[in-house]
Amino acid sequence: MRKNKLIITCITAVCLVLGCTQKPDEFRDFLNGEEVKYPGIVSSTFVQPGNLRLRIGWSPSPDPSITYYRVYWNNRRDSVEVPATTHTQTDTIFALINNLQEYTYTFFVHSFDAKGNRSIPVEISNARVYGNTYRGSLLNRPINITDPYDLLNDEGNEIKLKFLTPDTSNISTVIRYTNTADQVTELSIAPSQNEVTLTDFKYGTKIAYQSFYKPSSLSLDSFATNVIDTFPVIEFGVVEVPKNLFSRVNLPYDVQALESGTQVDKLWDGSQGPQGYPNIFHSNGDSPLPHHFTMDMGKLYDSLRTLQVTGRNCCHNPTEFEVWGIA
């Protein structure tokens, strides 16, 4: 047993002696006597996403030996070479990469010198590329659906369109309409603009709109919605005027009532459907036809479009009438 221990001790000592005699730079034999050099790395990387493409930017390395950069992706199966046009760190070098899929990529940037020495990689992760899936998620900017427009004149060619606040990624909304010269016209409104007035709109035609978006402020491309929406039918609305504001006006030569209970204000007393005497307006018949009377509507209106007439329940209803107005 003692003899075995002695033999093991001797072997260990020999190994230690041999280990101590190895030269510290013998690894150079594996490098063919050449020193390994690592060119400088890039800094301040950023990504500009786009439509099935993107652009990577970085500040170049100040290392003057660098002649080009190579960007790798897809598990290093794809790459693109970019010449080192500058070594000034305040400059920016770009790599535009086309024909990508709608996906989130990871890129690696290496610096190379003329001898092919390569730097350690700089990783750029979460680099998103956009496409049809993103476009399909976009909606046109909402309009004020409860009050989408105001017609501003009787001709209907001046109209104010009303929008709501859009998504923060919206950059513009294009409005298409037919003008009074029968030409299709386009105008664009910014996200901060909630109203726009058209002064040459052809009444009776449609107004369409389509919104555009950028997924980020650095995006190379804008994306239009897949759908073009239209405003509700543009037409003058029918709004019942408040009859409680109406009053009689007795001008010279106006027809007079048959009696005090059949005055002209019976025409707007709130009764529903045809009425019978004496709940009607009945003239005294002292003057030949046509008769005329005057009333005050109590406020100014820019358009009077519809007049509803309910006749007497039996007889003596007018067959023709005209309405004249003055402000």
Rank of each mutant, 00 (worst) to 15 (best):
G33N: 11
D25P: 06
G311E: 05
F223W: 15
A95M: 10
T294Q: 05
G204R: 01
I97A: 00
A127V: 02
V129Y: 07
D296R: 01
I97M: 00
Y209F: 14
R53H: 15
V309P: 12
P288Y: 14
G19W: 10
H110V: 13
K3P: 01
T86F: 02
D29E: 14
L267Q: 02
S119T: 08
E158D: 15
S125K: 12
P288Q: 14
C315K: 04
G136Q: 09
L258C: 02
Y38W: 06
A327Q: 11
T133V: 08
Q256P: 03
I234Y: 03
L307F: 11
L52R: 09
Q101V: 03
E81Y: 09
N32Y: 01
P166Q: 14
G33M: 09
N144V: 03
F163V: 14
N32H: 03
H316T: 07
P252G: 11
F108R: 07
W324Y: 15
T168H: 09
N74R: 04
P318F: 13
G204Q: 04
T310G: 04
E186N: 13
N126P: 14
M297N: 00
C314S: 00
N32K: 04
V238I: 06
Y69R: 01
Q275M: 08
T225W: 10
A114Y: 09
E155S: 09
V71S: 10
T319F: 00
C15R: 00
T104R: 02
I159K: 00
V14G: 15
F30K: 08
E320Q: 05
K243G: 13
V36W: 05
L52S: 10
S283L: 05
Q275I: 06
L54H: 12
V47I: 14
P232V: 08
L96C: 01
V109E: 13
P288S: 15
V82P: 10
L187T: 10
S65A: 11
V239S: 04
D302N: 08
D302F: 09
A114F: 06
L152N: 15
V174A: 01
T104G: 06
S61F: 09
S216E: 11
Q308S: 12
